[in-house]
């Protein structure tokens, strides 16, 4: 499967090490995606990267990605400007259970750049506000300068039945918001176990802590918790073998899994 060339519409800086890329999808490409899915973005001569789609699934013809600069390929992506071209394959992978979540309270827990694939869920839920119960968004970042989507959070907090809380692991004197890891935010929300569906994205350790919190202290069953797994992905079609996690290929069986499904595997070291 070959990449479809797509034109860069906009590159916007988010934080000191993240940026958001908006692409115009050409007729050879596919713009439809389900929240949670990812694309393989090809930068000419540099390489291909799996990047979660962070945009609004209700806006046609556009694909939006928020990327953190961590290496050579992401640096090359960061150098793109409006009018440049990138190759796009996909979208690939499983999606957040936005259909199963209908009628439920949606709990979103994100750590760091993990808020990116979940922003698509928030867009979707707010676009179909009546279909969902309360929308609770808990976001943890490393420090105040790492907080993503600040304007979105302000906007979300103005929506009906929506609470978006942020916290940082390391605060400073100028920061007037919360300091504490993302699990400390659970003190400020009330969860109804039978009516809550949880969607988690962030570093694996953070998700394990969050699962312990919401299963243990809040009694949300593992079948109502969904999370994304990260492994090395090269082909996105289950052929290259890199992204295996036990019996699963993260690229085609994931990246979104129910906690019930992956719980036994999360305890195995170096899987």
């Amino acid at each position: 499967m070959e990449p479809a060339p797509c034109r860069v519409l906009h590159v916007g800086r988010e934080t000191h090490d993240t940026f958001t890329l908006t692409l115009e999808v050409t007729p050879e490409g596919r713009a439809e995606f389900a929240p949670g899915q990812f694309s393989m973005l090809y930068v000419f001569g540099v390489g291909e990267l799996p990047i979660s789609i962070s945009g609004d699934p209700g806006v046609p013809g556009r694909l939006t990605y928020t990327v953190r600069v961590v290496g050579r390929a992401t640096e090359a992506l960061a150098r793109l400007r409006a009018g440049d071209w990138v190759g796009v394959r996909g979208p690939f992978g499983s999606a957040w259970p936005v259909e199963a979540a209908r009628g439920m309270d949606v709990l979103i827990v994100a750590g760091g750049i993990g808020i990116a694939p979940l922003r698509s869920v928030v867009y979707h839920a707010l676009r179909n506000r009546d279909a969902y119960g309360r929308l609770i968004i808990l976001h943890g970042a490393r420090s105040p300068k790492d907080l993503l989507y600040r304007a979105d959070f302000r906007h979300w907090n103005r929506q009906a039945e929506t609470r978006a809380l942020t916290t940082v692991d390391h605060g400073d004197m100028r920061w007037r918001g919360r300091v504490g890891v993302v699990t400390t935010l659970f003190r400020y929300v009330r969860l109804v176990p039978e009516r809550t569906i949880a969607m988690l994205c962030g570093p694996e350790i953070m998700m394990r802590y969050v699962c312990a919190e919401i299963c243990g202290n809040h009694r949300i069953p593992p079948s109502q918790i969904f999370l994304t797994m990260e492994r090395n992905m090269k082909c996105a079609a289950g052929f290259c073998g890199h992204c295996q996690f036990g019996p699963y290929f993260i690229c085609k069986d994931g990246p979104v899994f129910s906690y019930e499904k992956v719980k036994p595997l999360l305890g195995i070291h170096e899987l």
């Binding site: 540099v46 290259c240 073998g241």
Partner: peptide, 26 residues
């Protein structure tokens, strides 16, 4: 065993690029 890795290359002028797939090992 079917696992592979990919490598991207480009010419010095940055006008042509290739993407190669090679056997990889877990």
């Amino acid at each position: 065993c079917f696992c592979t890795d990919v490598e991207d290359t480009s010419d010095v002028r940055g006008e042509r690029a290739e993407r190669w797939r090679r056997w990889d090992s877990c």
